[in-house]
Write a protein that binds this DNA or RNA. Structure first.
Lengths: 110, 110
DNA sequence: TTCTCTCCCATCGCCAAACGATGGGAGAGT
DNA sequence: ACTCTCCCATCGTTTGGCGATGGGAGAGAA
C-alpha cells in the first residue's frame, strides 16, 4: 500500500526533502524518486506537493537552486542545501524525534 | 518547550484522542488534560482543535457521547469509543508506526 | 450576596499544507 | 512523425488546526 506522506504525517515533507538534498544536490524529479526508493514505496510525493514545497524552502533560504542539464540532458533545476537549511534540518529533526517519542508514549500508556 | 501537536504532526490528533478515550471514557476537557499529562507537557491541544476533532470522530461513528455530571458536578459530555473506533484506532496506529519507521529510515539513510 | 475562578462546552473566520487536475517544453527512441 | 519519459510549474479545492470569542454554571472568597 502506497501512502502519500501527509496522509498521516503532514509537515514532514520539508524535513524529508531537506534530508535528501543534504545528502546530494538533486533536482525535483530526482528527489521524488529517491524518496520513493529509500522508503521502499511507502512514501510518495506528488509533483503538486513537491514543487510548492521546494518554492517554500527556497523562499525561506533553506535551499539554493540553479539550472543545469540533467543526466539525461534535460533542463533541470538543481537544489542545494544552505547552511541555514542544515541548521533547520537538525533542529526540526530533533523536534520530530521528540514528538514521535511523546506520541508513542501516549499511544502505549493509554 | 510546549508544542501543539500538529505543529509538526497533524493528522495525529484523532489517533491520540481515540487512544485516550479507549483507555477510559472521558469528557473533552479531561482528554486535553490527560494528553498534556501523559506527554509530560510536550503535547497540547487547544480547545478549538479538540472540539472540532471530537465532532469529527462522532460523525464518523468512532465515538459515542452522552451528557453526565462531571466529577466536579458540572455538565459534561462523556465520550466513549465504539467498536468501529477501536478498529480504526488499531489500523491507524499500525499505519502510523509504519510511516514513522519509513520516515526515520529516510532521515537516517540519506 | 456578589464576585471571581475554574471547569466545560462550542463556533467562526483565518491560514497553511497538500492534492488532483492540468498544462506545458524538450530530449530520445520507433 | 509519434510517443515516451523526464522535468517544470500553477490553479483551485479541501482539510486541519488555531486564535479569538462567547457563553453557562458550580464553588469558594470577599
Amino acid at each position: 500500500m502506497a501512502v502519500t506522506v501527509p496522509d498521516l504525517l503532514p509537515g514532514t515533507l520539508d524535513l524529508l526533502i531537506l534530508r535528501i538534498v543534504a545528502g546530494d544536490s538533486m533536482h525535483g524529479y530526482g528527489i521524488a524518486q529517491r524518496l520513493k526508493l529509500l522508503s521502499a514505496d511507502v512514501l510518495q510525493v506528488g509533483e503538486s506537493s513537491l514543487y510548492p514545497a521546494l518554492q517554500r524552502l527556497l523562499l525561506n533560504g533553506y535551499l539554493d537552486a540553479e539550472w543545469a542539464p540533467s543526466e539525461n540532458n534535460r533542463k533541470a533545476r538543481y537544489y542545494t542545501i544552505t547552511k541555514a537549511g542544515r541548521k533547520y534540518l537538525a533542529a526540526e529533526r530533533k523536534e520530530f524525534d521528540q514528538l514521535v517519542a511523546a506520541i508513542q508514549r501516549v499511544l502505549q500508556t493509554a
